[in-house]
Amino acid sequence: MRKLISLVLIVVSIISMAMFMPPVGGQLLITSSFGEFRGTGNRGPHFHMGADFSTQMRSGVPILAAADGWLVRVEIDEDDIYGNVVVLQHENGFRTLYAHLSGFSEKIKSIIDSVVAEFGRRRIVVEFPERNIWFKAQEVIGYSGQTGEAAQPHCHFEIRNIDETVCYNPSDMLNIPKPADANFTVRGLMIDGERLNYTENEVYRFRGSWPKIAIDAVASVGRNVIGLRSLRLYFNNDLVYHIDFSEIRLEEFNNVWAVYTENSVADGYRYTAYYKLYPDKSSNVVKLNRFPELGQIPSRTNVTIVCEDVWKNEHEVKFVLERR
Rank of each mutant, 00 (worst) to 15 (best):
R2P: 00
R2S: 03
R2N: 08
L4I: 12
L9H: 02
M17R: 15
Q27D: 05
T31E: 11
E36V: 09
P45E: 05
H48I: 07
A51I: 14
R58C: 06
V61A: 01
L64F: 13
W70R: 02
V74P: 03
I76Y: 07
Y82N: 02
E91P: 09
Y98G: 15
G103Q: 01
E106T: 09
I112F: 00
V115R: 08
R123V: 10
I124P: 05
W134I: 02
Q138G: 12
E139S: 01
I141W: 07
G148C: 11
H154L: 11
I159V: 07
I162Y: 06
D163V: 11
V166W: 05
Y168G: 03
N169E: 11
M173C: 08
L174M: 04
K178P: 01
P179N: 04
P179G: 00
D181I: 04
A182M: 06
A182E: 03
T185W: 10
R187A: 04
G188S: 05
D192N: 15
E194F: 08
E202K: 13
V203D: 04
I213S: 03
S220P: 00
V221F: 07
V225M: 10
V225I: 12
I226V: 09
G227V: 14
L228E: 04
R229L: 08
L231H: 07
N236D: 09
I243L: 15
E247V: 09
E251Y: 02
N255C: 04
N255S: 09
A258R: 07
T261D: 11
T261L: 11
T261Y: 12
N263I: 14
Y271N: 10
T272G: 08
L277F: 15
K281H: 06
N284L: 15
V286L: 06
V286I: 15
L288A: 05
R290C: 13
P292C: 09
E293H: 15
V303C: 04
V303N: 02
N313Y: 06
V317Y: 02
E322R: 03
